[in-house]
């Protein structure tokens, strides 16, 4: 399990650096984003792991996102970037990509299905994956944005 956590942290950090480049972050902030992503994603991994607390993906994502938001607020003055610039690339490794993929696939096959049985199956796939996807996205956004809202003074003076 230790090895899994280390690998999870490593790949999250690489993903965060790539997404820092896409969103044109100042280079000095790349390292901060990598650290925040590694810690945040490892926390979610631990929370969801059966050997850990075995928490549902929605709750685990909400808690990990809040942790990422807090880290971003308190590290952004060191990186001298806005807090949201620090948490965005760090949040991306938690995007529910596979759920989104299954949702759209379910929808497409639902439309193309030619029997009631097939339709019901694909509709279930569409709605089940879609609800989980929306819940996770909401949890991510709410969790990460609330610390910025709560610690306005630190967040808005990070570039001072």
């Amino acid at each position: 399990m230790d090895q899994q956590i280390i690998l999870d942290a490593l790949f999250s950090a690489i993903a965060a650096i790539g997404f820092s480049a896409i969103s044109r972050l100042p280079r000095r902030a790349y390292l901060y984003c990598a650290v925040i992503a590694a810690l945040g994603h490892s926390l979610r991994f631990l929370l969801m792991s059966p050997d850990g607390t075995g928490m549902h993906i929605f709750l685990a994502t909400l808690i990990a996102s809040c942790f990422i938001g807090l880290l971003a607020v308190f590290l952004s003055p060191l990186a001298r970037t806005p807090a949201e610039a620090c948490f965005f690339p760090s949040l991306l490794p938690m995007i529910p990509g596979i759920y989104a993929y299954m949702t759209f696939g379910g929808l497409a096959l639902c439309i193309l299905s030619d029997s009631q049985e097939a339709y019901n199956f694909y509709y279930y796939q569409f709605s089940h994956n879609g609800f989980i996807c929306i819940a996770i996205l909401t949890g991510m956004v709410v969790g990460a944005t609330l610390p910025v809202f709560m610690f306005k003074k630190i967040s808005f003076q990070a570039t001072r």
Binding site: I14, A15, I17, R24
Partner: peptide
């Protein structure tokens, strides 16, 4: 002054998405 080396970005995005694949 807001410019970036597009080849570096391309490389980093490629590595990032491959890492994503492992995370999933």
């Amino acid at each position: 002054s807001d410019s970036q080396n597009k080849w570096v970005v391309l490389l980093l995005v490629t590595l990032a998405n491959a890492s994503f694949c492992h995370l999933f």
